[in-house]
């Protein structure tokens, strides 16, 4: 009996592993997705090894060396108005983007999936109340909701995560609810139910794993959106508090010296663009590899 279960489990794991391997192979074959993956890997390496890669401490000021051009006085990309090294600040800025991007999406995915599962699985009143509230949240342009929340919560990394996270909730709720409704209709859930399984067991063992593919694709795309949102908030002076380096706030500062020193604004924006492009490419590839017919 136990050995039989063990064999079954081993088989399932083997199948999963094979599937994962084939998804990975498809991703690598897709050149654009591979480029996206490369950008993401680069972003992680930069964020983790920032102290090693950076040539200067990111917040070290030297007013005598302000607004230097690229390559001057050992500053790879020049300096800002306080004489801080732009290259080093860009490197450290990747940390903010990555942390906010991932944490906000995890926040939104957690609460959004929870609401989506409840709404989709139990249906009825739960469904109409939750989804009405989600519709209400959807009425706010994403960035405007984040801006309003930041106004109320105040600046800071954690608040930025919460604000962007909340703005992400309705999207996840909708995606997960749709998936749950699909899976719920399928035969094997009916069988499991007829065998007397508990709700929690059905949800965690059957419904959620089957909603995984679209969820992961949606989450990937959302990280790109969250990174742009953080940069937007910081650009508007509502995001990360100075002097912490964030690509958005660097762009805002660079904007004031557009004529004297356009590099600062150029490079920080390029960093955002390449990061977001990479994540989007990876997300596109992931969707095609998992299920080309997925509507997301």
């Amino acid at each position: 009996m136990t050995s039989l279960q063990a064999t079954e489990a081993a088989e399932v794991m083997e199948r999963t592993r094979k599937r994962e391997r084939s998804v990975f192979r498809k991703l690598i074959k897709n050149r654009l997705a591979a480029f996206g993956l490369f950008v993401i890997a680069l972003l992680f390496v930069t964020a983790i090894f920032a102290p090693v890669i950076a040539t200067h401490p990111p917040n070290q000021m030297d007013v005598t060396k302000s607004l230097l051009g690229p390559g001057e006085a050992g500053h790879l990309l020049g300096t800002d108005s306080y004489g801080r090294d732009i290259f080093s600040r860009l490197i450290y800025g990747s940390r903010v983007s990555l942390i906010v991007g991932i944490a906000a999406v995890v926040f939104g995915a957690f609460f959004g999936s929870f609401l989506g599962v409840i709404a989709g699985y139990f249906g009825g009143k739960f469904d109409s109340i939750i989804m009405r509230i989600m519709d209400g949240l959807f009425a706010f342009p994403f960035i405007l909701l984040a801006i309003t929340l930041m106004t109320v919560l105040g600046q800071g990394l954690v608040n930025a995560i919460i604000a962007i996270g909340i703005a992400n909730i309705p999207g996840f709720a909708r995606v997960v609810r749709g998936q749950v409704l699909n899976v719920k209709e399928s035969e094997y859930i009916a069988v499991t139910k007829s065998l007397g399984a508990k709700h929690s067991r059905i949800i965690f063992q059957h419904v959620l794993p089957n909603s995984f593919a679209p969820l992961i694709v949606y989450a990937t795309m959302s990280v790109a959106g969250a990174i742009i949102s953080e940069a937007s908030l910081s650009f508007l002076g509502l995001g990360i508090q100075p002097p912490t380096a964030s690509w958005g706030s660097m762009l805002q500062e660079g904007r004031n010296f557009l004529v004297l020193n356009p590099h600062m604004a150029t490079f920080s924006g390029l960093a955002i663009l390449i990061t977001v492009l990479g994540i989007n490419l990876f997300g596109d590839g992931l969707r095609d590899a998992l299920d080309p017919k997925m509507k997301l």
Binding site: A224, S232, G248, L251, V259, A265, L270, L273, L277
Partner: peptide
């Protein structure tokens, strides 16, 4: 269009100002 959907609009705005205005 792929680059377009990944574009931080505020940066694009600043760059347009830099080239076409400044």
């Amino acid at each position: 269009s792929l680059i377009g959907v990944s574009m931080p609009v505020f940066w694009l705005g600043v760059m347009l100002v830099l080239y076409f205005s400044v």
